[in-house]
């Protein structure tokens, strides 16, 4: 495998770059002599860099899973209502139990994300089977409908400010030590998926083959649903939804190395980390010292890549 070293070096290079870029000047060479530089590095730069990489990796893996669950390439955790579900859960907890601790909020967000994703799975089961493209359309509309519910509740309860940070383009400028660690949970959930990689690959082969091979599809579906929901919920709460990562990265990796997930999941995770790191860096540099949210950059790049995927190879659903 020559891809892994290449991706790893790209990741390291981008992480180093990410550590040096920012409004405050930090020279990596004299962090040990300069207390202030060390502080900026440990409290702000490093957490941000790690957060970006974890987000990219976890969202990409979640994208692979949702695509295997749905057996459709043109969906991602941000286009099937999962993110809106997480926001709905967070809103619910914030309104009903404002004093609840963080872990309660996380569980509520994950559960609500699970419910809305499950709703999406229920909707697409009723769609005509041959119409591959209806699945992503249904997902986008469902997220729109759920999003309007979230907006409505947000307005009614004066929580629009929160809703904005969850669902509008995610960004990492607010990340400091102590405010991103939940992303490790997301990464852990995504890592869990790797152990079941074969099962997800078989699930992607279709109901018939999966049954023939004696796979209990229902339990694999549940696992996939749980991982996708937990990853999305953590990302939504910590940094806000980053669009298109979970959709585009799995497609690009699949084009190159196929869908043998045991081999490809690590590559997917690395590529996702590299992509989001690169976008975050661009966002930090383009109007330096101000920032453009990474989610905005990905909105442009991701949409363009999606259009390319949609039209490049016809009918490879």
């Amino acid at each position: 495998m020559r891809r892994m070293p290449a991706l790893l070096s790209a990741l390291i290079a981008l992480m180093l770059a990410s550590l040096t870029v920012g409004a405050a000047h930090v020279d990596l060479r004299d962090i040990f002599s300069d207390d202030r530089a060390m502080l900026v590095l440990l409290e702000s730069r490093l957490p941000r860099t790690v957060a970006v990489a974890l987000t990219g990796a976890a969202l990409s893996v979640a994208g692979v899973l949702i695509q295997a669950l749905v057996r459709n390439r043109f969906v991602g955790p941000d286009t099937v209502g999962t993110a809106e579900g997480a926001a709905l859960g967070l809103l619910g907890v914030t309104i009903l139990f404002p004093a609840s601790p963080l872990w309660v909020r996380m569980i509520a967000a994950s559960l609500a994300a699970m419910v809305t994703t499950w709703l999406f799975l229920g909707v697409i089961r009723r769609l005509p089977a041959r119409e591959v493209m209806l699945i992503p359309i249904a997902g986008l509309v469902l997220s729109g409908v759920l999003g309007s519910v979230v907006t409505f509740i947000g307005w009614q309860t004066d929580l629009m400010q929160y809703v904005g940070t969850w669902l509008l383009s995610g960004e990492f400028s607010g990340v400091i030590a102590g405010r991103y660690e939940l992303l490790w949970v997301a990464a852990g959930a995504a890592g869990l998926a790797w152990f079941a990689a074969d099962r997800f690959a078989i699930l992607g082969l279709g109901e018939q083959v999966a049954t023939g091979l004696g796979l209990s599809t229902a339990s694999v579906m549940r696992l996939g649903l749980a991982v996708v929901s937990v990853v999305t919920a953590m990302v939504v709460t910590t940094v806000g939804m980053i669009p298109f990562v979970g959709l585009v990265v799995p497609n690009l990796v699949s084009r190159v190395m196929g869908d043998n997930l045991r081999a490809s999941l690590p590559v997917v995770a690395l590529s996702g980390a590299v992509l989001v790191l690169a976008c975050d860096l661009v966002g930090r540099l383009v109007i330096y010292p101000y920032e453009v949210p990474a989610g905005m950059i990905l909105g442009i790049l991701g949409a363009a890549l999606f259009l390319w995927l949609l039209h490049r190879r016809p009918a490879h659903g």
């Binding site: 119409e131 493209m133 949409a303 949609l310 039209h311």
Partner: peptide
């Protein structure tokens, strides 16, 4: 391919 066209428009 109408669904593909719609998806293109949405994106």
């Amino acid at each position: 391919d109408i669904p593909r066209m719609i998806l293109t428009g949405v994106i």
